[in-house]
Design a protein around this nucleic acid. Sequence first.
DNA 1: CATGAATGAGCTTTCATTCAT
DNA 2: TATGAATGAAAGCTCATTCAT
Lengths: 217, 217, 217, 217
Amino acid sequence: MLMVKRREVQSSVKDERLVEMRRDQMIKGAVALFKQKGFHRTTTREIARESGFSIGTLYEYIRTKEDVLYLVCDRIYDEVRGQLHGMNLNAGTVSNLAIGIAHYFKVVDEMQDEVLVMYQEAKSLSKDALPYVLKKELEMVKMFETLVQKCVEQGELQMDEEQVHLLAQNIFVQGQMWGFRRWALHHVYTIDEYIERQTKLLLTGIEGYKTAAYKGE
Amino acid sequence: MLMVKRREVQSSVKDERLVEMRRDQMIKGAVALFKQKGFHRTTTREIARESGFSIGTLYEYIRTKEDVLYLVCDRIYDEVRGQLHGMNLNAGTVSNLAIGIAHYFKVVDEMQDEVLVMYQEAKSLSKDALPYVLKKELEMVKMFETLVQKCVEQGELQMDEEQVHLLAQNIFVQGQMWGFRRWALHHVYTIDEYIERQTKLLLTGIEGYKTAAYKGE
Amino acid sequence: MLMVKRREVQSSVKDERLVEMRRDQMIKGAVALFKQKGFHRTTTREIARESGFSIGTLYEYIRTKEDVLYLVCDRIYDEVRGQLHGMNLNAGTVSNLAIGIAHYFKVVDEMQDEVLVMYQEAKSLSKDALPYVLKKELEMVKMFETLVQKCVEQGELQMDEEQVHLLAQNIFVQGQMWGFRRWALHHVYTIDEYIERQTKLLLTGIEGYKTAAYKGE
Amino acid sequence: MLMVKRREVQSSVKDERLVEMRRDQMIKGAVALFKQKGFHRTTTREIARESGFSIGTLYEYIRTKEDVLYLVCDRIYDEVRGQLHGMNLNAGTVSNLAIGIAHYFKVVDEMQDEVLVMYQEAKSLSKDALPYVLKKELEMVKMFETLVQKCVEQGELQMDEEQVHLLAQNIFVQGQMWGFRRWALHHVYTIDEYIERQTKLLLTGIEGYKTAAYKGE
DNA sequence: CATGAATGAGCTTTCATTCAT
DNA sequence: TATGAATGAAAGCTCATTCAT
């Protein structure tokens, strides 16, 4: 699995254990707030209070407010990726692919808030920090590409490389969609229904449609 | 076609012609700025300057900074919808659906900046203004639902209602995707390639995949 | 007379008259405060209040706190120089030189607070602004050099160039000394006594001392 | 020689040896920093780091940041005075006075940085600590007064008491001047030239000038 | 004695909004 | 209608100082 170098966020506290712990608190607090009011409407004081320490302490563990956003995005990616770790990328069967998709959608469902925050706020990262986050996203999309590619290699699917790439993008975005379009989806489907229907659409397209018709057009 | 009631933005200027004109300038200026720096990082002074009038004048035509965002989002939806107007929603053939999708994707491509702005900033609207914008979005999704539904009614496709709904969502989001994931897509596909490949995936799913296999699983 | 280019301090207010007026207030207020507590211990809010306007208004006329210090130093130099304008630099007589010195010392006495502030705080200017202030100081020293040089040219005094330079420095610093060493001088001399005695020392050295004695040593 | 009572700086450490040692480190570190950025722009953390111990330890040896400044000023005076110790204050000859002046100027030259720091930052001392430092300064000026006075008593010079006082002030300030007006002097004179020329001016005034002329005016 | 994490008062600066002209 | 000077609440961030370990 690709390893993405992490952008270091400076802390004036030396004890690594403590830094880890405080940042956990901070990220948790920040996610809760960003979810409600977004990054820009959340103040550093609020983040400190929600995290359970003072504004001074907050700034012992970061250098700028944007660092909090970066830490949040970074963490969320890591957790999503961690959750996806169990996926068997090598089987190369379609049913394995379906399982992978289902697993990913479930993860998104469980981490709805985090995914929403990351989705909506990541673009507020500076030109400096954004690439690190995008790289991680790319890496996740790559996991789906691999999953699909294996199926192609096993002869279970026939697609060219670019089609594989696009399919992976679609899977990834449709997972996120469950998080960022709740208002349009959650009152229509349960997560299981969503998984079932999206998988079907992804794999089979529109039932009853004759490929030839479109091709001939 | 559904008509969504527009949320009125108060202006202390009475001359409607003038209001229209000033708001045109304002929206144009604001889009240019939001595109670069986002809503929160753009100041009202900058919007006024970019629009070609003074800060005092800006506030003759709006009441709060958020009004500008609302006007921008509102306008973009109207324009996208306007552009989509030519689509024949009644034909009920798959090739007509494909044409509709292609048309929509083209519109998104041409209005990339606007779509990006709306996509990224709409969530900054207050709980007060958001519903108006979401309603417009819903309305657009509905257009695709109608398009698909006609095909079902004509017997060209077989799908239940919820599948139609989800497909419409997918079409809509995948269009926007071209705008908000430029960094991942634009260097891989031209808009025409994107249209061709997405349409294929949407309509036929993964080629060579035997429906039965998945169903049986 | 040399003209030193002034470093521009940006203001977002366009009306030059107003800028002039507000900066007058600001400089007056700032001098009063800097005199009491120094530049670093004075807050921008205090400067605003003392100047008679709000903190927001203060920042309409400057960009950073340091700008205030620069404006203060700049203004003081200009005023001292303005006051010195009357000095006849061309006469070339010793009595004219003595009058010049007396005049300068009087000016320092009248502008004691300002001179003190400038003397103590100028070094807090950034590397960016300092040269402008030093250039003005150099210019003032030059005035004394000219004054002395004329005497040399008229044959009233015999000194080489470097001696002239040093004498001018001494005159300048001893003038300031009256401002920045008040605690040591003001309870011993009146300004008139100070002028008389310093002039005597400057011009005649130590009375009764036989030059030969030192030279021979 | 006058003894000035030293203002005690509280330390919670009892071991006097240790206190002495730590304060030596502290003063050395602080001078280095104050020289670069001034007292106000230097943080206590920086002082601690530069001194080679932690912020906690720093505060074991002082009570407030200002204590550091006081210790620095105090130390510099002591060192300058220590260096001046060799001067024979009793000879009462003009050449001895000249030697004293030269010696003092040399000391200033060697301790440029310290003198500069003290000169620029002493005024930042609180109303509480300032008198102690000023008293030390007075004491140094007194040394020059004594030196001159002896010459008067020996009949080598004729001056009244106030003239003696002023001459001592001038000597003292002109020494410091070499430290605090480097930018104006150091590229024109070497320290030896400066000593020679200043001594000449101090002792003989302006050569070729007829006392009568000024007196008559 | 030494450490350094924690604190929060207080700083400089910004910017949406108002209102007299 | 148009202007732009004035406002001040509120933001991000710093840093002298304390105190538990």
